[in-house]
């Protein structure tokens, strides 16, 4: 069975594990660097990106996470996870993991009272996806080679670049597991090709 980790430093970890298991893979909470060796793909969950970054630094996760991505193993970032994946974060001189070629803006839809849910079309995944946006970021630009999977009011809210997947909303907060299932399929394919 495929093993998919959820970075468990802070945030909505349990919900992602549940969604992974509903999608037919094994979900593992990753709190230590060594655990990255056991997994075939990784989800970086929603939470507070500044908090997660501090804990990533504190436990020397930054380089191992970058190496994990560069080895070809898929990573899926949701909300704060999307910010951590991006090569360019508005208002910051440096990126966090800097793995996925895109420019993102934090808290781009406003504060909590502006947080919302809306139905989205996600290319190749669903045309009626209930997406929950919480103090969400959006993707201002994607780089060459990345494809836009979903937009909300002209803002890019989901994208994929090779084995990296990112969305600004929280698929783990609903019972709709189609986007997670899409990621599980990405992991399955990468596992096959990495084994060759």
């Amino acid at each position: 069975m495929m093993k998919i980790g959820v970075l468990g430093l802070q945030g909505a970890v349990r919900e992602h594990v549940r969604s992974i298991e509903e999608s037919g893979a094994e979900g593992i909470v990753v709190k230590r660097i060594e655990q990255l060796d056991e997994i075939d793909g990784l989800i970086i969950p929603g939470g507070e990106s500044t908090t997660m970054r501090r804990l990533i630094d504190k436990y020397h996760f930054l380089e191992p996470l970058q190496a994990f991505g560069k080895s070809g193993k898929p990573i899926f970032g949701t909300c704060a996870g999307l910010i951590l994946l991006a090569t360019n974060v508005q208002g910051r001189d440096t990126s966090h993991l800097g793995l996925m070629n895109m420019k993102v803006e934090r808290n781009a839809f406003g504060r909590q009272r502006e947080s919302f849910e809306a139905e989205l079309e996600i290319k190749g995944v669903a045309d009626d996806f209930e997406a929950v946006f919480i103090r969400a970021p959006y993707i201002a630009e994607v780089g060459e080679g990345a494809s836009v999977l979903a937009q909300y009011q002209d803002k890019i809210v989901a994208a994929q670049e090779g084995h990296y997947l990112a969305c600004a909303f929280h698929p783990e907060l609903t019972d709709d597991h189609r986007l997670t299932a899409h990621f599980v399929k990405m992991v399955e394919e990468s596992k096959k090709s990495l084994a060759c």
Binding site: Q10, R14, G47, S115, F116, V132, F133, I134, L173
Partner: peptide, 18 residues
């Protein structure tokens, strides 16, 4: 839709472990 249970409770979910 703003201010739904999912949006309001979800905000607290993001604070977990913090």
């Amino acid at each position: 839709r703003t201010g739904t249970d999912r949006v309001k409770r979800g905000m607290a979910e993001m604070q977990k472990g913090g």
